[in-house]
Every structure is written in structure tokens, then in C-alpha cells.
């Protein structure tokens, strides 16, 4: 269960978010525009303004501000970004329903391109763009849309949706007739949208001044590869073990082909950064062909999942599946480099022994740390006497420490994380002791 502290911090975060989202309505109440609308008219307008407000603030949630992430973890900010779209879609669709009321049927003829006057058509196109964005993001995997294509279209489509909606509100809206309200609202809304420039223009500009190079490429079991990256002409960055960075390979950080990956190396080895990446999509499969000397750019570090958030724990428990072991590896390597003497446990699910990541490095770490590694294999080899199948509550019961206050880290495929998080909750592990981050949200 979440602790009171978690809930308070979450409440403050959400309270601030709601206040920012409501600001346009507060502005319209403080400096009222012309009256004359009935209840349905006013409600339709309010929903339109709220939809634009939420759409514009989506750019804040994804602007990679580190200070936005703490109470929850960066992944939950992205999850919220994704789920709040439900509200945006509902508000945007209800907006014409309330405004047109019984003449909605007649207004439907405006859906034919070219049929509506431009101030209305811009709203209709904004809604189409919004629906396309939402469907592409919610169903990306089912539609087998490649991540790169999705990411390339997501930003421009989002900007188009919100700019069209803003234009629609300025041209068709009744409530923005007073110039001061109009300009205040426009500046406020465009301010959020401008944050897109931070990620797509200013960040790449800053990254270009701090290039990296791939100094080593190590093939790993299970179609994975480790890229060793070193800063060129600058001092790189310090990170906490368990964090991640956005990697761009190639001569320009503007290419837009950046991907988030967990750091695998020890925080004590900075500025050298190792990323261990499993080949799952086009980009990651291409990594197997990367050669040393390849220019690269790293935007980071990000993420709140780290042993350093729980320095006083009696020990750390890592529950990992597949490449989810990568951030755990960084934390274990860091602990070993620090000469940590506490007892730690890694429960690690893999498909088969020959495809298990870090088998030998983990063995080596066991000699430097008080570390027990429990491999759970989906398809164990003949004569395997260890754990097999998928992670279960019974397995956790068998291996988890029953004394002391530990910090728990869960990283892996979604079904595994669901089982682990539910099982840990049933075992009475408070949510504040549990850290997990997942990034396969789209």
C-alpha cells in the first residue's frame, strides 16, 4: 500500500497539475467575456478549453524535466501522459455535442473535408489528429507500427493537433473576444507547446557540443550487445546506478532516432557508460553491427530508480526478467565497487540458460558481494535443479528475506512486473520500499 508520504506527494503533484490545467477557466471567470450562452453552450466551451489545456500540458510531461519525476518515477509521468489522453479525447468529443445540441446531426455534414468554414474545420482536423495520435499510441504494437515511425510522427502530429485547436478557439470561440484574455490565454498555451522545442531543438543543440564515442562493442548472449561509450572532449555525466539515458547513434543528434536505455555499468566507473541492449526492434537489431569509433550522443541521466534512494536498507532485492536485469546490474556493480557488505538477492527470469544475460559477470559479482543469484528459466536444460517456469508468488515466498527492511527493485516485461508487484504487496512490502520503472508504454 502507498504510505501517507507517497500519497501526500502524489496529491501535491496532481493538485498543481489540476491548477495549471484549470488556469484558462479561472482566467475566463476572472475577466468574463460576453455572456449569452446557455448551460450547454458554456459547458461545451469549458470542455473545449480544458481539452486544449490538457493537450498543451502534455508537452510539459514529456519535456524531460527531472524535477517532474520524483514522487513516482519517470515511467509514471509517461503513464499519466498516456492515460490523461482519455480525458482529452472525451472532452474534445463532448465539446461539439454540447455546443450543437439537437443540431449536431446537421453539424455532422461538416465532417466532409471542405464542407465546414475554416474556423470550424480547424477544430475538426485537430480532433482527427488527436484521435490518430491516441490510436497510434494505444495500439502501436497491435498495429505493428515501428517505434521509430511512431516517434517521428508523434511530436509533429501532437503540435499540429494543439495548434489547430488553438486556432479554432481563437477564431470560433466566443469567450476569447477581449484582447487581454485572448493574449494571456494564447501566451500561456503556446508556452507549453514551446516545450516541444526543448526536446527536439535545444536539447540536440546542447548534445552536439558534448559528443560521445563508442569505444567498445561486446556481443552478449540472447541477441544482446553491450556498447561502451566514452565522452569526447568533455567530462560526461555522473549518474546514480539504476538510471537510464537516451542514446543517439550517428553524426547528428537531430536525427530524431534516440532511444532510452538503462545504464549497465557501475556509477563508480563514470564517465565511462556501458549500455547493454537486447535486439528487439529495427534500431536495436542494427546495434549488433555498430563498430568502435562510431559517434554517439547521450542525453541523461534520467530516472529515479536507484539504490541511493534507500541508503539505509538492510539489503537490496532485485527481481528482474530478460533485459530488465540491466539497471540491476549497474546497481550490483556499484555496490561491489563500494565494497558493500550487506546481503543482496537477485531473482532473475530468462528464457533459457544459454540466452541468460550477465551469467558470468554475475558469478564474478557473487564473489565480491554477499549476493545470492536465483535463476528462473522458462525452458531449463536437462537436469536443471533450479527454479523454472515463470515467476510466482510461491517462488517469492521461498527466496525473499523474511527479516530486516529491504528495498525492492522490479524490472522486466510487463506481465512479470505485474506478478512481482502484486506478490510483494501481498507479502506486506510497503510501496515506498518498492521501486520499478517500465518504458514499453507505447
Amino acid at each position: 500500500m502507498p504510505t501517507l508520504r507517497d500519497l501526500t506527494r502524489a496529491g501535491l503533484w496532481l493538485g498543481l497539475y489540476v491548477l495549471l490545467a484549470l488556469w484558462p477557466l479561472l482566467l475566463l471567470l476572472a475577466a468574463p467575456g460576453p455572456r449569452g450562452g446557455g448551460f450547454a453552450d458554456e459547458l461545451g466551451s469549458a470542455l473545449g478549453f480544458l481539452a486544449i489545456s490538457l493537450m498543451a500540458m502534455q508537452f510539459l510531461l514529456t519535456a524531460r524535466f527531472e524535477w517532474l519525476a520524483p514522487p513516482f518515477g519517470t515511467d509514471l509521468v509517461y503513464a499519466f501522459h498516456r492515460h490523461i489522453t482519455i480525458a482529452v479525447v472525451v472532452f474534445a468529443l463532448l465539446h461539439p455535442v454540447f455546443l450543437f445540441g439537437s443540431s449536431l446531426g446537421m453539424a455532422l455534414s461538416w465532417l466532409i473535408p471542405g464542407a465546414a468554414p475554416w474556423e470550424i474545420a480547424s477544430g475538426i482536423w485537430a480532433t482527427w489528429a488527436l484521435l490518430a495520435l491516441a490510436v497510434a499510441s494505444w495500439l502501436r504494437k497491435r498495429l505493428t507500427l515501428p517505434y521509430e515511425a511512431w516517434r517521428w510522427t508523434h511530436g509533429p502530429l501532437a503540435a499540429a493537433a494543439v495548434l489547430l485547436a488553438i486556432w479554432h478557439a481563437l477564431m470560433a470561440g466566443r469567450l476569447l473576444s477581449r484582447p487581454v484574455v485572448r493574449w494571456l490565454w494564447l501566451a500561456w498555451t503556446l508556452g507549453w507547446v514551446g516545450l516541444l522545442l526543448r526536446v527536439r531543438v535545444f536539447k540536440p543543440l546542447a548534445l552536439r557540443r558534448r559528443p560521445w564515442t563508442v569505444s567498445e562493442v561486446r556481443p552478449e548472449p540472447g541477441d544482446a550487445v553491450t556498447l561502451v561509450l566514452e565522452p569526447v572532449g568533455h567530462d560526461g555525466f555522473r549518474f546514480r546506478s539504476g538510471q537510464f539515458a537516451w542514446l543517439t547513434l550517428g553524426a547528428s543528434p537531430f536525427a530524431g532516432r534516440e532511444h532510452p536505455f538503462s545504464i549497465a555499468s557501475s556509477a563508480m566507473a563514470a564517465p565511462r557508460v556501458e549500455l547493454t541492449i537486447k535486439a528487439v526492434g529495427d534500431f536495436t537489431r542494427g546495434l549488433l553491427a555498430v563498430k568502435p569509433g562510431q559517434p554517439a550522443f547521450l542525453d541523461g541521466p534520467f530516472g529515479t530508480m536507484s539504490i541511493d534512494a534507500f541508503p539505509d536498507a538492510d539489503g537490496y532485492v532485485f527481481i528482474a526478467g530478460g533485459s530488465g536485469v540491466v539497471p540491476c546490474m549497474s546497481m550490483l556493480r556499484t555496490l561491489a565497487d563500494r565494497g558493500d557488505r550487506r546481503p543482496h538477492l537477485l531473482l532473475f527470469g530468462s528464457s533459457e540458460l544459454s540466452r541468460t544475460l550477465f551469467r558470468e559477470p554475475l558469478q564474478a559479482l557473487s564473489t565480491r558481494l554477499d549476493l545470492r543469484v536465483v535463476h528462473v528459466l522458462e525452458r531449463p536444460p536437462e537436469g536443471w535443479r533450479g527454479e523454472q517456469g515463470y515467476l510466482t508468488q510461491a517462488m517469492l515466498d521461498r527466496w525473499l528475506p523474511h527479516r530486516g527492511r529491504h528495498a525492492y527493485f522490479v524490472c522486466g516485461p510487463n506481465p512479470m512486473m505485474d506478478v512481482a508487484e502484486a506478490a510483494l504487496a501481498r507479502l506486506g512490502v510497503p510501496m515506498s520500499d518498492l521501486h520499478s520503472e517500465r518504458f514499453d508504454l507505447v
Binding site: 496532481l14 449569452g36 459547458l43 480525458a87
Partner: peptide
């Protein structure tokens, strides 16, 4: 479970905003 919390937070926020839109409309309707 954390993911469910994010969904609940988003839906709760949406519901709250809908309520404020109703209040806004009630306050302004002629």
C-alpha cells in the same frame, strides 16, 4: 499496481476537471 495508480490518477483528474467544467457552466450560464 503502480501503473494502475497512474490510470486512476489520470481518470480522477479527468473526472475532477469535468466537474469544474460543470461548475464553470453553471456560474456563467445566463
Amino acid at each position: 499496481m503502480r501503473q494502475r495508480l497512474a490510470l486512476q490518477a489520470a481518470l480522477g483528474t479527468g473526472a475532477f476537471l469535468l466537474l469544474t467544467a460543470l461548475l464553470f457552466a453553471a456560474a456563467r450560464a445566463s
